[in-house]
Write a protein that binds this DNA or RNA. Structure first.
Lengths: 100, 100
DNA sequence: ATATCATATTGACAAAATTTGATTTGATGT
DNA sequence: ACATCAAATCAAATTTTGTCAATATGATAT
């Protein structure tokens, strides 16, 4: 079974790798198919596929099949969730017993 | 030399590990010294020290020495920076040429 | 059915992250 | 100076990630 922290860690795992941040950068300009991404980044095809899977599983990127192509884009919903999660994880709990 | 993406990745590296999320959880209730954290989490002393270093280097946690104790707390500044960074990294670029 | 193209999956390997136990450092107390 | 405690650092062992090449899958076209 997956703990809540493990689930949360997955969201940020998407963002803790240089290559994946590069991919996000490419996606920021809009919808891209994998083949386009592949042209703009220095990794092999299977490696790209591996990273895209991590990005999609984090929820930050969504994919859409179109014929034999897979298109990717940044998910507004997913990004928004990630931002809220980060805010929650780092918010100091003002009702806690231990303020000094 | 460190690329910008590598620098950004470091911020999220702090958050992509289950144990570090647990530590953040403990810190949310207020300022804690390492020895207190150690009592509340199932890892060894050197391992905790390793994770604290990563958290501090990300900017999300700050440390303060007091005698022989090190106290840690979540940094408002650092958290805020991380949130802004995340927002930036996932914002879709509306002036881009490729909207469909 | 066969061929082709885009992408996903697999297994082997290399590289990076994490854990562990031992040792070191630095502050404090006697 | 010596002992003690908290935390950091180091080296070795282990685990997890990421890369590459090969292969599989699934859609499309002939």
């Amino acid at each position: 079974m997956e703990t809540l922290n493990e689930k949360h860690a997955k969201v940020f795992k998407a963002l803790c790798d240089e290559k994946r941040l590069h991919i996000l950068e490419l996606l920021r300009n809009g919808d891209n198919c994998a083949c386009e991404l592949l042209e703009n980044i220095d990794i092999g095809q299977s490696s790209l596929s591996y990273h895209m899977k991590i990005l999609v599983e984090s929820g930050i990127v969504e994919s859409r099949q179109e014929g034999k192509w897979t298109h990717y884009k940044i998910s507004e919903q997913g990004s928004s969730n990630a931002i809220h999660l980060l805010r929650e994880l780092t918010s100091t709990n003002c009702t806690g017993k231990k303020e000094n």
